[in-house]
Write a protein that binds this DNA or RNA. Structure first.
Lengths: 141, 141
DNA sequence: TATTGTTATACTCTATAACTATA
DNA sequence: TATAGTTATAGAGTATAACAATA
């Protein structure tokens, strides 16, 4: 039984991504968070007052999908919305949100450390540059 | 506006994966295929007679989710099911499935080439080894 | 005119539990 | 007793179109 896909970078990228994402979600489950929740909490924590649209653009989540997303975090008492002008919502963490964000950050750091440690040490310095290139790189032909 | 996530391997892995997957799906749209359809066609093409369960194990798709998946490809006239024993279904490509698979393979090869070319040439040899490690590697502490 | 937030909707992918029939 | 296929169901994530209010 041969797998014609496991030498293809794009296929490996997807399999590695889904596998490691499952690990992260498992870690975050103790906080009743998903990875998407955690990334938004970290983003807001680093940028209090960021608007819903700006956060969506950075995380590549569409405006329409941000609505129930933010509403859920607000209902959980983690995120607060404040009107900036007539149409924009400024987002910030509640004190409970701050606490949960810090604990999420700890779990994420542990996850990132374990993930990087899967790579043989001599190749580790290339991991982030390569992933950045695969994401939006131009290469050099 | 700062993004606290773009230095994290796990986050970059996810973003790179979803971005490149969108590109692949766009290419495959001319064949009315999704990336998951294409990967299954390639797997069956390389392993005629493979059972539904075996294919699911290799592609990490659960048995329950294979059912509507295969049914759809069968309804499109691309895949044929043949009883191997009382419970197993052997999968193979119809002649139309063979044709579509070959064209999908061409698109995938083009996609994989373009993806790899995003990485600066001096780092390219590390791409597959690193992705394999991130997927299921053990590292060396 | 362009942007923000919103509603409605649909599709893909993934996950679990339970059933049957077969090995 | 374990496995293959199946049904039903639910939850994420993502996508598009359209609308009101505001800049």
């Amino acid at each position: 039984m041969q797998d014609p896909l496991t030498s293809l970078p794009g296929y490996l990228l997807r399999r590695a991504s889904t596998a490691s994402l499952a690990e992260l979600n498992q870690k975050l489950a103790v906080l009743t968070l998903r990875h998407s929740d955690a990334s938004l909490l970290l983003l807001i924590g680093s940028n209090p007052g960021i608007t819903q649209s700006e956060a969506g653009r950075i995380l590549d989540i569409q405006r329409a999908n941000m609505v129930p997303f933010i509403a859920r975090l607000e209902a959980q008492g983690l995120v607060r919305r404040q009107q900036v002008d007539g149409r924009s919502q400024g987002l910030s963490l509640t004190s409970m949100g701050e606490d949960v964000m810090l604990r999420a950050r700890g779990l994420i750091e542990e996850y990132e450390r374990q993930l990087l440690n899967k790579v043989p040490s001599d190749m580790r310095p290339f991991v982030v540059p390569i992933l950045l290139s695969l994401w939006n790189g131009a290469g050099d032909a």
